[in-house]
Design a binder for these strands. Structure first.
Lengths: 154, 154
DNA sequence: ATCCTTGCAAAAAATTTGCAGTTAG
DNA sequence: CTAACTGCAAATTTTTTGCAAGGAT
């Protein structure tokens, strides 16, 4: 639990430093991306964010979306997820938590499961690495897809 | 442990079925890819495999490499890894095991850590998914990179 | 006024696919 | 024979980047 406290402190420090340095500007594009990401419970791809933000800022470009997502995740204001599949996804929630992805429809949900940070120490004992972090991802069939007919019947 | 036994049986069955169906042909390209992958302890990308196989089969194309890697991992003869980063990696070892990736040089090593399959059952209790599998990936600094000077000195 | 940020378009990176010709079974 | 497979090249998909114009502080 102490580890999580450190993490929160570090995140706050990063935010303060980003603001203090005075180099981060609050543009409407950046603000809207952040707002929309905070609203969403899903974990959209860059392109999905583009389509959503475009409704409010029709002239925004996909390049700006990518640059901001990269910048915001680098600043610790959002989280970049590199899950199975071809595209990266983004999460407005910064706190460390695990995800599960539906193999049928592709939706990604948060898991209410405590992070098993102790496992990092276990890994240090079986390899010579300095272990920094781990990523734990689950895959399965979501409730909606489960209630529909199985593939081999359809 | 019983679960792993089932897994091994299933893998063998898949191999048998693949051979029985008589639809899989043993081409020199496919055989060499499989041979080279079995030799390697690293977890190469499609392009790295291409460069290695090309030494033995100079006329092979990258498309063939991709098609075979897809086919072989679909048949359970090799493993496709979708770790952090942009490229997929391939593992000649089929048995389920975890990996650690160096954040500096990008190399991927196997971890001698038992698979925590019980966690799937835990996840079922906190969400409505039918949990199929999980992926646990570590990141850190490998021994070689650790012994070199830190970034901010160089 | 400065220089971070944007839109646009082109480029890059990684992977997939169409097709005509080749080859294993 | 014939259907699976290959090489080649073009096409897709996803992300990054160069540049001149725009805008926040």
């Amino acid at each position: 639990m102490t580890r999580d406290v450190y993490l929160v402190i570090i995140i706050i420090m990063v935010k303060v430093l980003v603001n203090m340095s005075g180099k981060m500007r609050e543009t409407s594009q950046r603000r809207v991306i952040l707002e929309e990401l905070a609203k969403l419970k899903t974990h959209p791809t860059a392109n999905e964010i583009y389509e959503i933000v475009r409704k409010r800022l029709p002239r925004i470009s996909l390049g700006t979306i990518y640059r901001n997502l990269e910048f915001l995740s680098g600043s610790g204001l959002i989280q970049k997820l590199e899950l199975a599949g071809t595209q990266k996804r983004f999460d407005g929630t910064v706190a460390n938590h695990y995800h599960i992805k539906c193999v049928k429809c592709g939706r990604v949900d948060d898991l209410d499961l405590p992070a098993i940070n102790l496992i990092n120490d276990t890994v240090i004992t079986v390899c010579d690495y300095e272990v920094l972090w781990h990523r734990l991802e689950f895959a399965g069939v979501c409730p909606e897809c489960r209630s529909s007919k199985p593939d081999y019947i359809q």
